[in-house]
Amino acid sequence: MSPVLKIILQRLGLGLVTLFVVSILIFAAVNMLPGDFAQAILGQGATPEAVAAIRRDLGLDQPPVTRYFLWLAGALQGDLGNSFAQANFASFVGADSGGSAASVAKQIAPRFWNTMFLAGVTAVIAVPFAVILGILAALYRNSAFDKFANIFTLTSISSPEFFLAYVLILFLAVLNPWLPSLSNIYIGMGFGERLEKTLLPALTLTLVVTAHMMRMTRAAIINLLASPYIEMARLKGMSPMRVIVRHALPNALAPIINVVALNLAYLITGVVVVEVVFVYPGIGQLFVDSVKIRDIPVVQACCLIFAAAYILLNLTADIMSILSNPRLRHPK
């Protein structure tokens, strides 16, 4: 087996182990809840029989280890259990939904794709924009442009996402009605309309992510510019742009790819607040709503999905940086 493949398999294995431990952690954290879900659903006036019935229904009467493996096995098959809130609702209206309306997976699936769409639009705008700006800032460092970019990115990094979101709403939706401020996306919407409604949240996220990515790209390239071979290229009389594009960029690719992947991982956190501001029907909004009403299965599932995405992106960053670095590809 080639050494690269071995390293990659090692990393993948490590990622899987991490995800496994994280799933234990999430499950354990949720099990630290006082009282009982059944009690919480039925409220204070519940009879012991009703509580016992619900406990049996939800499988809460089994020991935690059994429940954990049942949950994990379900999650691996795409069955994330039933939502308490919806189960509660269904029992109130007396409608037996046959478990379909209350299924967490059914709730999450469309929202998951919405969130992926938002993240995708953001990435498509942010990544080229940030890398080009970063290269320009490195090329013209200490110029007025670089200083302005530094101040601008620092400001947008340090502003909370909702501040940026409201400022964008103020200028692009309210004062100048160019874009819709609410992203009411539904199934079966045309791509163009969907894109238009996603644009404002995507722009907000772009502002946050671009700033990080641009600063890191700039730092990575400036770091390289101190190397002797860059000095050599300059002394040959190459133009600064050529020095950067031909000599610095191929070697800066590893750190830049790393930066891109890490920032996409950062998107995961940003998405929660932004989705709430724009009422974007994604997984982040579902997560916050479930946290508020303590809908444990949904919280658990969302947490697992976020953590998996985060680990996957970090893993990608790791593997890409190995693949793009000959010294790591051919270890001595």
Partner: peptide, 23 residues
């Protein structure tokens, strides 16, 4: 610490806040 850092911090905080609010 590696395991704790594998969960995005805002998400982890929200999860734990759910539990804390019950407590």
């Amino acid at each position: 610490i590696d395991v704790l850092m594998a969960i995005p911090s805002l998400i982890f905080a929200l999860l734990l806040m759910t539990i804390a609010s019950a407590w």
